[in-house]
């Protein structure tokens, strides 16, 4: 016993060092894959307020640009308004459309803190549980997909952007319907890579890549990017496809969070699919 105490006393500094390293590294590795709490991240209230205060000043510099973009979007939506259509068949009147039921709602928000130079880049947005944001909801901007909510705080949330290691987004080519998984290699903020597309499918350069909408996080057909380069993987019958993101994550400011109104129904159905038995 005395020897043990002497041992501890001799190595107390080293043990303290190991303890601190243990705390920080275990916290890091447990959170980088499965974020749990809003505390100690930028989704917590105090940090959120600080960042939105900073954002208030810095966003003033880009107002002109943002306005132009919103105007464009507004004009585009205005075109779809029934008012701007000329009715050809005068026999029918639209009273209440029961053929279509609302499937997705969008919550608009603003990015108050972001990054693109790290290996895993998270964005903080100024909407949280109070506005109906939950973990796992998709986030997109006017130009394309941005990411998935990974921590929902009370008033702020942290979004795992496409520029992270484990994003694994289901995407497909709009022309051929070939689908694969989108990943980011951590190098250039404008390019991602799609894996898992069989190389007997002929793909066209610069054809569009959109979300597949399989998991219900994103609606089908949301813009992701364009094919920039197609390369064969050696020794495997697969393409390695380089994608130019349609969204420039260095300048993203305004985003929409997707609320899928039929998510529960979809998940329940998926749960009923009989699982394949794993053979050992």
């Amino acid at each position: 016993m005395r020897e043990f105490l002497a041992f501890i006393k001799r190595f107390q500094i080293f043990l303290f060092f190991v303890l601190l390293q243990g705390i920080s590294l275990s916290f890091y590795f447990s959170n980088v894959n499965f974020p749990k709490s809003q505390y100690l991240t930028s989704a917590s209230n105090i940090n959120g307020w600080l960042f939105s205060w900073e954002k208030y000043f810095t966003s003033l510099f880009d107002l002109g640009n943002q306005n132009r973009q919103l105007q464009k979007e507004y004009a585009h939506l205005k075109e779809k308004n029934p008012v701007s259509f000329h009715q050809i068949n005068r026999q029918y009147y639209k009273i209440e459309d029961t053929l279509y039921k609302q499937r997705y709602n969008y919550i608009s928000g603003e990015i108050i803190q972001s990054g693109w130079a790290k290996r895993n880049n998270y964005f903080t947005i100024n909407v949280g549980k109070k506005q109906g944001v939950k973990r796992g909801m998709g986030v997109f901007s006017t130009k394309g997909v941005v990411g998935v909510v990974s921590i929902a705080g009370t008033h702020f949330s942290v979004v795992k952007s496409l520029l992270t290691e484990n994003i694994n987004l289901d995407v497909m080519n709009i022309k051929t319907g070939a689908f694969g998984i989108l990943k980011w290699d951590g190098k250039h903020p404008r390019f991602g890579t799609i894996y898992g597309v069989s190389n007997d499918i002929k793909l066209k350069k610069w054809s569009e890549i959109v979300t597949r909408g399989e998991s219900g996080i994103f609606p089908k057909g949301l813009k992701v990017g364009k094919i920039a380069k197609i390369k064969a993987i050696e020794g495997k019958p697969l393409w390695e496809i380089k994608v130019l993101f349609s969204e420039d994550f260095r300048t993203t400011q305004y985003v929409f969070v997707i609320k899928h109104l039929m998510q529960n129904e979809l998940e329940e159905l998926i749960r009923k699919i009989p699982q394949d038995k794993v053979e050992d």
């Binding site: 060092f17 601190l20 920080s24 916290f27 890091y28 991240t41 930028s42």
Partner: peptide, 28 residues
């Protein structure tokens, strides 16, 4: 020295969403 570095690192982590990575390097 170790404790203050840990505190410093954790404070940076909170703002940059790195969950303890800065703390670990600072303590090192």
């Amino acid at each position: 020295l170790l404790f203050l570095s840990f505190l410093l690192g954790i404070s940076i982590d909170i703002f940059s969403n790195t969950f303890g990575l800065h703390a670990s390097s600072a303590v090192f």
